[in-house]
Design a protein around this nucleic acid. Structure first.
Length: 278
DNA sequence: CATCCGTGGTA
DNA sequence: TTACCAAGGAT
């Protein structure tokens, strides 16, 4: 949330939840989350299992653990207060340049470019006449020319950034932009060039049959088990839910081991049960 | 630097 | 129904 009565921590939580996730799905979970864990100190001492369950269907549950690690870092290194410099913010787990910029610009009117995927696409089309940015991460050149483009006042700059983001999300979209209704097409380099298709388009990521789907199955089963108060699942059961159409025979054990290694799940030798981490 | 990391609504 | 999509980060 970017409203005035929301804390910096609340805003940071919202930004992290919103990474690659629709806002409509974030909103209700964020509200409950902030009532339950209002400060970094609250989240830092919370159970990882509770955190993963509360993360629910936001996707990429490793972000939930990173958010907890972020809270811990803020408590231990910044006295429980969200730091407000690009350097300190991007050193926090789960906080990259985009998230740090969004917090600084939208909440504090600090004059920094905010380059999300939408803004990058809008700029590369309008200025370079290309369909997509050449790399998956912003170059220094992209950042500096975005900086030059922003007005002097930080709050005005934030307004411009937000407008660019929404313009990219609603008009200058990835695969089917509304160029016919675009009000700036007469100045757009991509329009002038005749909307050339890019050679290298963003690589589509399949889902069915992948490790991600198998991991999702395991995590969902364990979330449900924890929510229902059970003591976890047998390893056999976990490997069984990880068996999906399109997966190879090694997939269940492969993703199981990966989740263990990442600390997303734990196996208790005594109870012989797999659970979410304490 | 390209790839991997979920999820469920929607056209 | 299937395919696409949605405010990135870590490695």
């Amino acid at each position: 949330m970017r409203a005035a009565d929301v804390s910096d921590w609340g805003s940071l939580v919202f930004e992290i939840m919103s990474q690659q996730t629709p806002i409509s799905r974030v909103q209700p979970i964020w509200i409950e989350w902030m009532e339950r864990w209002p400060t970094p100190a609250d989240l830092a001492t919370a159970s990882s299992a509770d955190i993963i369950v509360a993360w629910a269907n936001l996707g990429y549950p490793s972000r939930a653990l990173r958010l907890k690690a972020c809270a811990t870092a803020i408590v231990e290194k910044h006295g429980g207060e969200v730091p407000l410099t690009m350097k300190d913010l991007t050193l926090l787990p789960g906080v990259g340049v985009y998230t740090a910029s969004a917090l600084l610009a939208f909440r504090h009117g600090i004059r920094v470019p905010v380059l999300d995927t939408n803004v990058r696409r809008v700029l590369v089309r309008f200025l370079d006449g290309r369909e997509f940015p050449p790399h998956t991460t912003p170059s220094k050149a992209e950042t500096s020319r975005a900086d030059v483009l922003l007005p002097e006042n930080g709050h005005d700059a934030a307004d411009v950034s937000l407008s660019l983001m929404e313009f990219g999300a609603l008009v200058c979209t990835q695969l089917s932009p509304s160029c016919n209704e675009c009000t700036i097409r007469t100045n757009c380099a991509w329009a002038s060039a005749g909307y050339p298709k890019d050679e290298k388009r963003p690589t589509p990521q399949p889902y069915a049959g992948t490790d991600r789907q198998a991991r999702g199955r395991i995590m969902k089963a364990l979330r449900t088990a924890h929510f229902e108060g059970s003591e976890g699942l047998t390893k056999r059961r976990v490997l069984d839910v990880a068996r999906i159409d399109g997966g190879d025979r090694y997939q269940p054990t492969r993703v199981y081991r990966a989740l263990i290694k990442e600390g997303m799940i734990v196996y208790d030798e005594d109870s012989k049960r797999v659970t979410l981490p304490r």
